[in-house]
Amino acid sequence: MTLTFYAALSVSPSSMRKTFARLEDGYGSLEPLENIMFTPISGGEKAHQTIRELNDHVGINIMFDSGGYEVQVGNKTFDELQAYLHDFYGENHWGHRYVLPDNVPVSQDSSEVVQRKVEQTADISALFYRQMPDPLKPRALAVVQGHTQDQLQHCLNKYASLDGLQHVGFGSFGTSGVSNGVNMLTTEAYHNLEWAVNQAHEAGLSVHAFGVGGPTSIPLLYHAGVDSFDTTSWMRSSGYGNVFFPFKSRYNASHRTKRGGNLLTKDELPHIKAETEHECPFCQEMSQLRSSRWNRIMHNLIVIHEMTNRVEDMTREEILKAMDEESKYRRRLKKVTSSNKSEVSI
């Protein structure tokens, strides 16, 4: 199975250009940025122009996100989102994927509100798909929402009936943080994800996982069978001084905040690099990670890309051995692996 990483870019046009330039100059390859998640409704005209120029000059694959997050946090209404996507998709046919409009249930929603959002997402996505230009339909991606398997099945049944639809995405993770803006791979969400992936694959649909993808969650996504995922963690976490290493929980390299993970020291750096078999131009010295947010960004991006490739060639036992003993995602992976083995033996 192949797992594809989409680097979510939700930054200013100048930062977009700087991200590509720094990676190419320092790393010598743009491969970690070959697949990009971009949200048109969140960016202005300059951002649209910049991502189009990057696409034309570098040849990247752009997934246009629906912007359901903007509805989720209250910045836009669902009606405004639909109208915007109708116009933008109709005028821009150069994308690799087109995410259909979705109304995201959050953890605090009542069961009635969740049901309404699920039905609204499925019905509007189906209508929106039928109205899309024919050349875009094979590139459309419909979002599966729901807190129960019946709700997920409702979406999948609706989408499986759409002639020519090839891709769906899973968006019903747990949410936390300010305005419910952070997706979490809870135990319930993981089981729903794994179940939905199996159902979608049986229907011939690929599955994308939205907005989850730290180093310790990638093995769970792979184990669940998803085909692709996106995350902003490589950039967002670096702003808090945090750095990633393959299969490990985050470390705090800036030593300026208590919001990060364990503190990373100069003496520990060579050991953690050797243990995780990671090496990149942006983590040669501790001073690079401590003082430069951009070095942390580039380093984290490379780690996520590297892990996505490595996990495909590892057994579950090798993955569990590589992960931190105290990692909650390791415990979750071990638990679901053990459960699956028990089911097989019965």
Rank of each mutant, 00 (worst) to 15 (best):
L9D: 03
S10N: 14
S10R: 13
V11G: 02
V11L: 08
S12N: 05
P13S: 02
S15H: 02
S15C: 06
R17M: 14
K18V: 03
F20E: 02
A21W: 09
R22E: 13
R22H: 10
G26D: 12
Y27G: 10
S29L: 11
E31I: 13
E31T: 14
E31R: 11
P32K: 11
N35A: 03
I36V: 15
M37Q: 07
M37T: 09
F38K: 08
F38T: 10
T39C: 11
T39N: 12
P40Y: 05
P40F: 04
P40Q: 07
P40V: 09
S42R: 05
G44W: 06
E45F: 05
K46I: 00
K46W: 01
K46A: 03
A47P: 01
H48T: 13
H48I: 13
T50L: 03
T50C: 08
T50N: 09
I51Q: 07
I51D: 08
R52F: 06
R52C: 06
R52I: 07
N55F: 05
D56M: 06
H57L: 10
H57Y: 06
H57V: 10
V58K: 12
V58E: 12
G59F: 07
I60G: 04
N61P: 02
N61D: 05
F64P: 00
F64H: 02
D65S: 00
G67I: 06
E70C: 08
E70Q: 09
E70F: 04
Q72D: 04
Q72M: 14
V73C: 08
G74C: 10
N75P: 00
K76Y: 12
T77Q: 12
T77F: 03
F78S: 14
F78L: 12
D79Y: 01
D79H: 04
D79K: 08
E80D: 13
L81R: 02
A83R: 15
Y84F: 15
H86N: 14
D87W: 08
Y89N: 03
E91H: 12
N92Q: 09
H93I: 00
H93Y: 06
H96N: 05
H96S: 03
R97H: 02
Y98C: 00
Y98E: 00
L100Q: 01
P101Y: 06
P101K: 07
D102K: 12
N103H: 15
N103M: 11
N103Q: 13
V104K: 15
